[in-house]
């Protein structure tokens, strides 16, 4: 028995009703971000400013490839963190607050307003080699997570994929999706 006929018998699906010979046109739908701006809910204004600056530093726009800001990675992370478990929320909030507090202490301004050299000094943990065990220092632990999240939120965005997939067929960002079943 061929697999197709086997699965059909298993499901016992009734034949789809005929639509009186009509051909139903296929409509291409879009995603919410294509026609609207995300509204941040999770980060405070200083935290959002810091995460935007951090995202731009982690993955800036390079040679016409959209960076984290163009991909709206900070706004996406605001949404994602808002739904995340408490320990992950705390990791981000405490990490961003620590970045801002250190920036104010050392440079009398928020992290978002630091120049690249000043910011780099605060991001020193990102210059340490990755280890299987997460760092015990909360700021280092936050920066490690944020680097991974900003990169993923960017390279998984429509903005990034629409540009990169033009250059490389392997960067289409598509995969097989298993539909939920009742």
């Amino acid at each position: 028995m061929k697999r197709r006929s086997f699965t059909q018998s298993l499901l016992a699906l009734p034949a789809a009703p005929a639509l009186l010979g009509q051909e139903i046109p296929k409509i291409d739908f879009s995603v919410p971000d294509a026609g609207a701006e995300p509204v941040p809910h999770f980060f405070t204004a200083p935290q959002l400013a810091a995460v935007r600056r951090l995202s731009d530093l982690i993955l800036p726009s390079i040679n016409g490839t959209p960076g984290a800001l163009e991909a709206r990675a900070p706004e996406f992370l605001d949404f994602l963190l808002g739904q995340s478990p408490a320990d992950r929320k705390a990791l981000y909030r405490n990490g961003l607050d620590a970045l801002n507090a250190t920036a104010r202490r050392q440079y009398a301004k928020g992290f978002a307003d630091l120049d690249a050299t000043q910011a780099d000094a605060l991001l020193a943990p990102l210059h340490k080699n990755w280890t299987w065990d997460a760092p015990t220092d909360p700021l280092a632990a936050f920066l490690r997570e944020a680097k991974a999240d900003v990169l993923a939120a960017t390279v998984n965005s429509r903005e990034w994929i629409s540009v990169v997939s033009q250059r490389s067929r392997g960067a289409s960002g598509t995969s097989i999706y298993w539909h939920p079943i009742e």
């Binding site: 699965t7 739904q83 998984n156 960002g173 598509t174 097989i176 009742e182």
Partner: peptide, 27 residues
């Protein structure tokens, strides 16, 4: 578990079309 159709119940989708951009629903 449920029965399913291996061809109909799976489809090619772009990661940016998923609600959580591939991160999955947290927790």
């Amino acid at each position: 578990g449920p029965a399913f159709d291996y061809e109909k119940d799976r489809s090619l989708r772009a990661v940016y079309d998923l609600p959580y951009r591939g991160f999955g629903k947290p927790g």
